[in-house]
Amino acid sequence: MRLLTHNMLSSNIKGVANGFPLRIEVEKVVEKQVDFNADFLKNMFAKIEWKALVDASRSMGYSELPGDANPSMLDSDDFLQKFHHALLELHLEEGALVCPETGRKFPVNKGIPNMLLHEDEV
């Protein structure tokens, strides 16, 4: 699972008011190269919760992203490269996603988060 997905995911356990962002527990991170596409990044930027991306990439061992970002930075190639790397090339391979409100852990195995809810969480 990449941070692109992490940035969109939110815990939907019944009764949870703010399930975003899921905290990341890292056991193993892998990097996979992805073709760079500036248009995609520029289009996505408005939808990204920047702070969550910065924190998530830090927890995955990547701390090159600036703490704050604004659309004017999208003109900088250096910025786009870092954004690209954090968003699309870092994979949480093993670990867990943790609901920020309830502490419920969603295990991640072989890069696949198990988001299935128990019956009493629906």
Partner: peptide
């Protein structure tokens, strides 16, 4: 990216 999830939930 893949996720194990039940759309009915």
């Amino acid at each position: 990216d893949l996720m194990l999830a039940d759309m009915g939930q």
